[in-house]
């Protein structure tokens, strides 16, 4: 039952972008094309899952065990930065097309607050009312928070392709209408809460 709560909670109820407003930068930056939005989403899922795993283990065995909770932020940033570096190298080798499509946003995952947010929330044992009891649940939450992130990005990219081709007044063209679209999506997601 708890697994079901985690999945629904991470993807819909507490969607990191549309409900908690974390990770807005890639949400607005990489959502122009569906292809690159999905690529970014997959990269975030990958980094988020790995980051939840490694940070949870590090916290339980090292930091909390020795009472060094104050080190959490800096160690987690460190872990995420290293992970992004690794992911970048792997993607560059395996899929240069995806690497070019992601462009500057791949290194920007380093400072994506959604990932640091997930890592920092998971080690407290409770994420927005959902209890995290063990490593499996922590990794599961990380994975589905990434899925929620990808879902938001994917929906946004689809909407944006429609919106960008509308005959809009010049003041609304481009970024303003994107922000309005984002706010409407956030209102729609508020229904789940």
């Amino acid at each position: 039952m708890n697994i079901f709560t985690i999945i629904i909670g991470a993807v819909f109820v507490n969607n990191f972008i549309l409900v908690k407003f974390l990770g807005i930068c890639p949400f607005l930056g990489v959502s122009k094309k569906t292809d690159s939005a999905l690529g970014m989403g997959v990269a975030v899922i990958f980094v988020m899952t790995l980051a939840s795993l490694i940070t949870y283990v590090l916290d339980k065995w090292l930091l909390s065990a020795y009472g060094l909770e104050f080190l959490q932020t800096i160690v987690f940033i460190f872990v995420i930065a290293a992970l992004v570096q690794i992911v970048e190298m792997i993607i560059k080798k395996i899929s240069p097309t995806l690497y070019n499509a992601l462009g500057v946003y791949l290194p920007l995952i380093t400072t994506n607050c959604a990932i640091l947010g997930v890592a920092l929330l998971l080690v407290t044992g409770e994420v927005y009312g959902v209890m995290i009891n063990n490593l499996f649940e922590a990794v599961l939450y990380g994975l589905f928070a990434g899925v929620g992130f990808t879902l938001a990005l994917f929906l946004m990219s689809g909407l944006r392709q429609k919106v960008d081709s509308l005959p809009l007044p010049k003041v609304l063209k481009g970024f303003p209408i994107t922000l309005i679209t984002a706010s409407l999506m956030a209102m729609a997601f508020a229904v789940f809460a």
Partner: peptide
């Protein structure tokens, strides 16, 4: 703390 950071 230093040892942990160094090790990581």
């Amino acid at each position: 703390a230093l040892a942990i950071m160094f090790g990581v």
